[in-house]
Simulated assay, not measured.
Amino acid sequence: MRRHVMTTGATAIAVALALAGCGNGGGSGGTNPGAASAQISPAQNADPQTVAQANALLSPNEAAEQARQVVLETCMAAAGGSWTRQTPEKATVYDLLALRPLTIEQARQRGYNEDRSTGEQAQGGGQAFLGTGQTEAPVSADLFGIKSQVNPDGCLGKSLAEVYGSVQSGMQATGVVDNAMLPAVNAALASQEMSDVTGKWSACMKQAGENFPTPDLATMNARQQPDRSMAIALADAKCRESVRYEQVRTSQLNRYLATFLRQHEAEITTVLDARKVGAQNAERILAG
Rank of each mutant, 00 (worst) to 15 (best):
M1A: 13
M1T: 12
R2A: 00
H4E: 10
H4M: 11
M6K: 03
T8K: 00
G9C: 09
G9E: 04
A12W: 12
A12E: 09
A16N: 14
A16I: 15
A18G: 13
A18M: 04
G21H: 02
N24F: 09
N24S: 12
G25K: 07
G26C: 06
G27W: 01
G27A: 11
N32Y: 12
P33T: 02
P33R: 07
G34Y: 04
A38M: 09
S41Y: 03
Q44L: 06
Q44H: 04
N45P: 03
Q49C: 06
T50M: 06
V51N: 09
A52T: 08
N55Y: 08
N55Q: 12
L58G: 04
S59R: 12
E62I: 15
A63W: 06
A64K: 11
R68A: 14
V70T: 10
M76P: 13
A77Y: 11
A77P: 05
A79F: 03
A79M: 00
Q86Y: 05
V93Y: 03
Y94Q: 10
L96I: 06
A98W: 04
L99H: 08
I104N: 07
D115K: 12
G119D: 04
Q121Y: 15
A122K: 05
A122H: 00
G125P: 05
G125Q: 11
F129S: 06
L130D: 05
L130F: 04
T132M: 10
T135A: 08
T135P: 04
P138W: 02
P138H: 01
A141L: 10
A141P: 05
A141D: 10
A141N: 03
D142Q: 14
D142A: 05
L143Y: 08
I146S: 03
V150A: 07
N151K: 08
P152K: 10
D153I: 07
S159Y: 15
Q168F: 08
M171L: 15
M181V: 02
L182M: 15
P183C: 00
A187R: 02
L189D: 05
L189P: 01
E193V: 08
S195A: 10
S195R: 12
S195I: 02
T198Q: 04
T198S: 07
K200A: 14
W201T: 03
W201E: 01
W201Y: 03
A203G: 02
K206V: 07
K206N: 06
K206G: 01
G209I: 10
G209W: 09
P213F: 00
T214G: 05
D216I: 15
M220W: 02
N221M: 14
M230C: 01
I232Y: 13
A233D: 05
D236Y: 08
A237V: 13
R240G: 00
E241S: 09
V243L: 01
V243G: 12
V243M: 02
T250H: 02
L253V: 05
R255L: 06
R255N: 00
Y256C: 03
Y256M: 00
A258N: 01
F260D: 07
R262K: 13
Q263C: 09
Q263P: 11
A266Y: 13
T270Q: 15
L272S: 15
K276E: 14
K276G: 12
V277D: 10
G278D: 01
Q280H: 15
Q280F: 10
N281Y: 14
A282T: 13
E283M: 12
R284S: 08
I285G: 06
L286N: 15
A287K: 11
G288V: 10
